[in-house]
C-alpha cells in the first residue's frame, strides 16, 4: 500500500487522486490537483506559506500526509470566493511580494470562522504561525481586525 487511490473533499468538490503514502497534502494539492495556491516555503512547518483549512482549522499542508486528509473537508485559497478577509487584504494592502499571502489568508479565515470576536491575544497567538519576509504584519493585523470589527 505504498500508493493509494483516494477520494478527497477539496473546496466542495470530490476529487479522486492516486498518491504515495509519503506524499504530503501540499505535494498532492500542487502536483496532482493543480491547486498551486498553497505555497511551498520551508517545508518544515515553520513558515505557514502552505496553510490550508482542514475541517475548519488551519493546517500546514507540508505537515500532513495526504492520506490523512481522507474524510476531511479541505479548503485551499482557491476555495475562498471573495471571502471578507480577501477583500480586507486588498483594502489594507496587506502584502508586498504576495508569496506568504495565501497562507496568511487561510489562517486569518480560520481564525475569523472559529473566533469571530477574537481579541488581540488570540489574533497574535494564531498569526504567529505565519511569516512574512516583507514584514507586512501591521497591514495584516489591520486587515484581520477590519473583518472582526464588522462581525
Amino acid at each position: 500500500m505504498k500508493s493509494h487511490t483516494i477520494m478527497l473533499d477539496i473546496n466542495g468538490d470530490s476529487r479522486i487522486v492516486t498518491v504515495r503514502s509519503a506524499d504530503t497534502l501540499l505535494n498532492a494539492l500542487r502536483g496532482k490537483l493543480g491547486l498551486t495556491g498553497a505555497k511551498p516555503g520551508c517545508l518544515n512547518g515553520d513558515c505557514g506559506a502552505c496553510t490550508v483549512n482542514v475541517d475548519g482549522w488551519p493546517m500546514k499542508s507540508c505537515l500532513m500526509l495526504v492520506v490523512e486528509a481522507v474524510g476531511k473537508k479541505i479548503t485551499s485559497i482557491e476555495g475562498l470566493k471573495q471571502a471578507p478577509i480577501q477583500q480586507a487584504f486588498i483594502e489594507n494592502f496587506a502584502f508586498q511580494c504576495g508569496y506568504c499571502t495565501p497562507g496568511f489568508i487561510m489562517n486569518c479565515h480560520s481564525l475569523i470562522e472559529q473566533y469571530p470576536d477574537a481579541d488581540d491575544t488570540t489574533i497574535k497567538e494564531w498569526l504567529e504561525s505565519n511569516i512574512c519576509r516583507c514584514t507586512s504584519y501591521i497591514e495584516i493585523e489591520k486587515a484581520v481586525k477590519s473583518v472582526l470589527k464588522r462581525n
Partner: peptide, 9 residues
C-alpha cells in the same frame, strides 16, 4: 509549543 497552526497537528 511550536506555533498555533502546528499545534493543530
Amino acid at each position: 509549543v511550536a506555533d498555533h497552526t502546528a499545534r493543530v497537528k
